[in-house]
Design a binder for these strands. Structure first.
Length: 613
RNA sequence: GGAGCGGUAGUUCAGCCCGGUCAGAACGCCGGCCUGUCAAGCCGGAGGUCGCGGGUUCAAAUCCCGUCCGCUCCGCCA
């Protein structure tokens, strides 16, 4: 009973039919959304990309069509022909944009069936495990909310291309098969058939190519580029993801940030209809980090409900409280977060939960003080001197109803990590987040940081990042001294011309002014303990390019998936990617990754070594 | 690499703590009835290796160990 399409051509999309089409003969094609058979009359909600319209088939008037319509099931692919009519009075459905009309069909073609039962019901709101949705992604994407996300993504591409084109940028594609570079993330690799034992790497980003395009005089480049990183996944991280990547010559960070900011404003306006009128605030990394304990704070958190971090190290520098004493002696920090007016909501039990929460992050405990009208309730105040209590209340501006949480540790990074997580947790529990989009520029990142594991300095951004000009002498100074501690001290004050764009607690983009002189680039490699030979081998092509007249340049890249996830209110970036992978990097739809045929392996000169048990 | 939560019918979940009429619900599916529904309704029915492997026990969905998978987080990664 299946029919081929033959000469049948649709005249309209389902979702566009309105009262103005009344009386018109139309042909439609799509999927059966739902069927309601009343015996003698059957209603088919027909769905295509544009929406849904009700099709009616009556047994008495069109017995042949009725017979076919009678056996139609959800997700069958059907074509219908009939006349648009206004629905009988009282049967209109205001929930549907097409709800005032219906198509009285006299012809129904079943073009394809859908196996029953379906893996899940194709409805706007579903509660189905994500793995099942990914395995049958084609069904998942039939759902309106998912289609909307694809559309938002599409519109964003268009706005980005138009905006950057108008700004004088030209779109250039860079290779996917390229060279493995050390630093940064682990590479995905591709064995070479023509060159036994050699491998391509898939790009972590088009970084080096876009710099070389600047050397080539392209002046302004952009690309909507796939990037690949073989690292562990998160809700906001996929092994392959998309960047809006751009680079410009003869500019400083101000101009790059301006383009990025204007671009994001244009996207929000044109895609979401949201006007972001205020300039995005700019903060230095040091300030952001000490105030929020992270380099990507969520500015939606109301600071009158969950305070930023308050440094109390000074208050307790002479304390007799052993726990704090030892932290101070070891050069650690004592910081606090105040949950303002939350005393009632934060029961002892809640605080116990919070304690467990921070302990999982590595905290030794969670000291707290509840401020009541006339007294302080706390397991630790008894160890404090009167002056300490007074200074503490002053510094924290604590008022009755507030609860103060402390973190003290010799490891200041741990203190910040824990208090950042605690702030976000408190914001959840106390519903202390405002609605909306809160952007933040973070600038003046440190150029390098000491990596304990590798026992060397590593770039905070990447090795091609330009230091601030005024910090250049410090790099020479650092390179001169052999004393590691001295070197760490000097380098900790060297800032880079890197910048991150943060939205609602997520890093949605970042960039930097790059090094355009080979002498300085070599110096940085030396600082990063990348030997002359290795530098030549891995980055020789860039160093060479820099020798032939590289212009000063800099650029930026948006994490498009993250941006879209935030724009569409998605919990994870998987929702804005058509075919994403699971946390273990598996594609449930195709089954990738998979074993290779031995013949294929041989062709690329590879042998598989079973992992040790 | 580590921590937490989860894995029972096509789907979502209950049962697990306290082992033994605990293999259940809803939706979906299948069959029938029904001419105005749009979460259609009514009647009837089918459907489960309880993720997998091992152990304890007279007896395991239930307790123990291991393992795989999914999600969230730390490490890692901009």
């Amino acid at each position: 009973m299946l029919e081929f399409l033959g000469e049948f051509r649709r005249t309209h999309y389902c979702g566009e039919l309105r009262e103005e089409h009344e009386g018109q003969r139309v042909r439609l094609a799509g999927w059966v959304d739902t069927v309601r058979n009343h015996g003698g009359v059957v209603f088919i909600d027909l769905r295509d990309r544009s929406g849904i319209v009700q099709v009616v088939v009556e047994e008495l008037k069109t017995p042949e069509a009725y017979e076919i319509a009678d056996r139609v099931k959800p997700e069958f692919v059907v074509a219908v022909e009939g006349v648009v009519r206004r629905r009988p009075e009282g049967t209109e459905n205001p929930k549907l944009p097409t709800g005032f009309v219906e198509v009285v069909a006299d012809r129904v073609l079943v073009l394809n069936e859908a196996k029953q039962p379906l893996p899940f019901q194709v409805e706007d709101e579903i509660s189905v495990g994500e793995e099942t949705r990914l395995r049958y992604r084609y069904l998942d994407l039939r759902r309106r909310p998912m289609l909307e996300k694809l559309l938002t993504r599409h519109k964003t591409y268009q706005v980005v291309r138009n905006f950057l084109t108008d700004e004088g940028f030209i779109e250039v594609e860079t290779p996917l098969l390229t060279k493995s570079t050390p630093e940064g993330a682990r590479d995905f690799v591709v064995p070479s058939r023509l060159h036994p034992g050699k491998f391509y790497a898939l790009p972590q980003s088009p970084q080096l190519f876009k710099q070389i395009l600047m050397v080539a005089g392209v002046d302004r480049y952009f690309q909507i580029a796939k990037c690949l990183r073989d690292e562990d996944l998160r809700a906001d991280r996929q092994p392959e993801f998309t960047q809006i990547d751009f680079e410009m010559s003869f500019v400083g960070r101000k101009e790059v940030m301006e383009v990025a900011e204007n671009l994001v404003k244009e996207v929000f306006k044109k895609v979401l209809g949201v006007e972001l009128n205020e300039p995005f605030p700019v903060m230095a990394y040091d300030e952001v980090y000490s105030k929020y304990g992270t380099d990507k704070p969520d500015l939606r958190i109301r600071e009158d409900k969950v305070s930023p971090l308050i440094d109390l190290t000074e208050v307790f520098k002479d304390t007799q409280f052993k726990v704090f004493r030892s932290v101070v002696d070891k050069g650690g920090v004592i910081k606090a977060v105040v949950a303002r007016g939350a005393a009632k909501e934060l029961s002892r039990q809640k605080i116990d939960e919070l304690t467990k929460f921070v302990q999982k992050l590595g905290a030794k405990g969670l000291a707290w003080i509840r401020v009541d009208e006339d007294k302080l309730t706390s397991p630790i105040t008894k160890f404090f001197s009167e002056e300490e209590v007074k200074a503490l209340l002053e510094r924290t501006e604590a008022k009755p109803g507030d609860v103060i949480f402390f973190q003290a540790d010799a490891d200041s990074e741990l203190v910040h990590k824990v208090l950042d997580a605690l702030r976000r947790r408190l914001a959840d529990e106390l519903k202390a987040r405002e609605e909306g989009y809160r952007f933040l520029w973070v600038v003046d990142f440190p150029l390098v940081e000491w990596d304990e594991e590798e026992e060397r300095f590593v770039s905070v951004h990447h090795p091609f990042t330009m230091p601030r000009e005024e910090d250049l002498p410090k790099i020479d100074e650092a390179l001169k001294t052999e004393d590691l501690e001295e070197r760490k001290k000097v380098l900790s004050t060297v800032r880079s011309l890197a910048y991150d764009l943060v939205l609602n607690g997520h890093e949605v983009g970042g960039g930097s002014i790059r090094i355009h002189r080979p002498d300085l680039q070599k110096k940085i490699f030396k600082l990063l303990d990348i030997g002359e030979v290795e530098a030549q081998e891995k980055f020789g092509f860039l160093l060479e390019a820099l020798q032939y007249g590289a212009p000063p340049h800099g650029g930026f890249a948006f994490g498009l998936d993250r941006l879209l996830a935030l724009m569409t209110g998605s919990e994870s970036i998987r929702d804005v990617i058509a075919f994403p992978k699971t946390q273990k990097g598996i594609c449930p739809l195709t089954g990738a990754p998979d074993y290779l045929d031995p013949k294929q392996l041989k062709e690329v000169h590879c042998k598989v070594e079973e992992p040790e048990q």
